[in-house]
Design a protein around this nucleic acid. Structure first.
Length: 359
DNA sequence: CCTCCACTCTC
DNA sequence: CCGTTTAGTGGAGG
């Protein structure tokens, strides 16, 4: 018995939401930015709507470059307003819940739905996908792209196939052809590094990957990753749609100026820790591991961590981070930091959603 | 089997 | 002269 899985992707979500609440900017190129605060226009683009993408502006590029690409055109630049996006997203997720057995939200603008119990044919599944698109358009005024398929990976690949405002169905018997000539870099889970490695092995497309030797892959990519990619290239993915509780919470920020001194860096870390405290409380989470994240001026990431007795005491985090920072700086007197962060992991939940595997 | 850490990926 | 967040993997070491 096959499953019926949907992947719903809200189209350039942040930009769409901004266009919706401000008619002045509707129809214009809109760019949503994360300003780092260290200088005017330092930071990166988070989302660009399709009008802006026509100009070559896209997620990840520096704001400065985006502004150069915009030249003297009428392009709207706005800062991210996550609180508001989360609010809109929450209402949309309610719509998705109505239409599915199980939902797995992967970010504010993306979710997997298992609708196996709600539809008994591909026609019905497609109808549900269409209804979801209509409801979101009607209630919230934004478009989305939906992939309908028989597992999460294929649903994701299907939703990517046509956007914005797409609806793509890929049935089991169509999967092979759908993937066949796709460059490996297009497969979800394969980034630049892995694509380069595969290309070096003479593997260019999904079918190359599907027909390659697993043993060969394992030499270059390791056992687990190889098997996963090898299966995906064949359209195989048995992972369930399941709501997840966070395994870790982290905050990263950019220092006002590069520094290698505790007195400069620690206040920033305390600021991040303070922000994390609220999140921890809201989630009713306890942590065991505290990690200092240090990104140097070469953009190389270093981490130092410490695992302690389970607690939710945020003051403990400050103490541990101070310790880790001093150790790190002492060991690396030559390194100058650009960004720093804190991560809490080894989480368990007090309201007992996930705990009790121990003892 | 656990911990630490670098690395890869995603949005 | 470039952000933030999360999950996963593998190797080294204990």
């Amino acid at each position: 018995m096959d499953r019926l899985i949907l992947h719903v992707d809200l189209d350039s979500f942040y930009a769409s939401v901004e266009e919706l609440r401000n008619e002045e900017i509707r129809g214009k190129p809109v760019v949503i930015c994360v300003y780092s605060g260290r200088s005017e226009d330092s930071g990166a683009v988070s989302t660009a709507n399709y009008k802006a993408r026509e100009l070559g502006i896209k997620a990840g590029i520096p704001i400065k470059r985006a502004k150069r690409l915009a030249k003297d055109r009428d392009v709207v630049f706005l800062p991210v307003d996550m609180q508001y996006y989360r609010e809109v997203s929450g209402r949309i997720m309610e719509i998705l819940e109505e239409e599915s057995d199980t939902i797995q939200q992967v970010s504010v603008d993306e979710a997997y739905l298992d609708i196996t119990g709600k539809a008994s044919s591909w026609e019905e599944a497609q109808a549900i996908a269409g209804r979801i698109k209509d409801k979101i358009k009607e209630q919230e005024g934004i478009t989305c792209s939906v992939g309908v398929s028989f597992n999460k990976f294929m649903a994701k690949m299907a939703s990517e196939h046509q956007k914005p405002d797409g609806l793509t169905v890929v049935k089991p018997q169509e999967a092979k052809e759908f993937l066949a000539d796709m460059p490996v870099a297009k497969l979800h889970g394969i980034g630049k590094k892995t694509a380069d490695t595969l290309n070096d092995m003479g593997i260019e497309t999904a079918s190359d990957l599907a027909n390659s030797s697993l043993v060969n892959l394992e030499e270059k990519l390791g056992k687990n990753k190889s098997l996963k990619l090898y299966e995906r290239a064949q359209g195989i993915d048995d992972s369930p749609v399941e709501p997840t509780t966070a395994q870790q919470i982290s905050r990263i920020g950019t220092l006002k100026e590069n520094s290698g001194e505790t007195e400069v860096i620690l206040p920033k870390l305390k600021e991040l820790i303070g922000d994390m405290g609220g999140k921890l409380e809201q989630k009713k989470a306890l942590f065991r591991t505290v990690t200092l994240i240090a990104i140097d001026t070469q953009l190389k990431t270093h981490t130092r961590s410490d695992t302690v007795q389970q607690t939710d005491d945020i003051v403990k985090v400050e103490e541990i981070i101070k310790q880790l920072l001093e150790e790190f700086l002492a060991e690396n007197s030559d390194i100058v930091l650009r960004r720093v962060g804190v991560r809490l992991s080894n989480l368990t939940y007090r309201k007992d959603q996930k705990t009790l595997s121990e003892f």
